[in-house]
């Protein structure tokens, strides 16, 4: 067998193996595109923290939570069987395009910019980080009703969730140090793998 042929076959094998490894081994979770907008999950505020900030329903009405993911929580406001509105809070870090509409808004609600989208949706931007939205369903809600609902969310508590406002001790301390010495030395801890529990896991 000639030398070039041997080299050719060898290279082909290596290329095939690499390609195979890339396609078949579970590398996919390391590849980009796993999360929304390629923002790391830990940078997004978890939807669980939003749940308690939803408005308390009026007598005769009912609040049913429908979705909860990283950076998103949604509930339906129901009266009997009829769905009156979709209420939601989302972290805009994964959807920077949604910030554009607030730049030209002159309306304010509790000092946060307010925008109407179409005839049934109203959105509020809180602390430049969280979008609160009410979308009328079924027979619909008029603008005043939607704005009242937006105001009924616990907006101060929501604004306080903004990670850049929180007094995170680690981050502050690091900023105070001169460049190059910012790494905090931590005692070595045994890496503990979280045990997989046999329960249903949410996707995010």
């Amino acid at each position: 067998m000639s030398r070039t042929l041997r080299w050719g076959i060898g290279l082909l094998l290596v290329a095939g193996l690499l390609l195979g490894a890339f396609l078949f081994l579970p590398f996919r979770s390391w590849l980009p595109g796993g999360t929304v907008g390629d923002v790391a999950k830990r940078e997004v505020v978890n939807g669980t923290q939003f749940n308690r900030l939803f408005p308390t329903p009026q007598p005769g009405e009912q609040l049913v939570f429908t979705q909860e993911k990283r950076g998103f929580s949604q509930a339906r406001l129901k009266r009997g069987e009829e769905v009156r509105a979709l209420l939601s809070i989302s972290d805009v870090i994964t959807a920077p395009a949604s910030l554009g509409k607030f730049q030209h808004s002159s309306d304010m609600l509790q000092n946060w910019p307010l925008v109407d989208q179409g005839s049934q949706a109203s959105a509020l931007l809180v602390a430049d980080r969280f979008q609160v939205k009410v979308i009328g369903q079924g027979s619909g809600l008029d603008a005043t009703q939607r704005h009242e609902l937006l105001g009924a969310f616990n907006l101060p508590a929501l604004a306080a969730l903004n990670p850049s406002l929180q007094p995170a001790a680690g981050v502050r301390g690091r900023k105070a140090l001169p460049a190059g010495q910012g790494e905090v030395v931590r005692p070595a801890q045994p890496q503990r793998q979280p045990q997989r529990q046999p329960v249903l896991e949410p996707a995010a």
């Binding site: 429908t66 979705q67 929580s73 249903l200 949410p202």
Partner: peptide, 8 residues
């Protein structure tokens, strides 16, 4: 659970 997470 995949679609809605664990709401509430």
């Amino acid at each position: 659970t995949q679609v809605n997470g664990l709401p509430g």
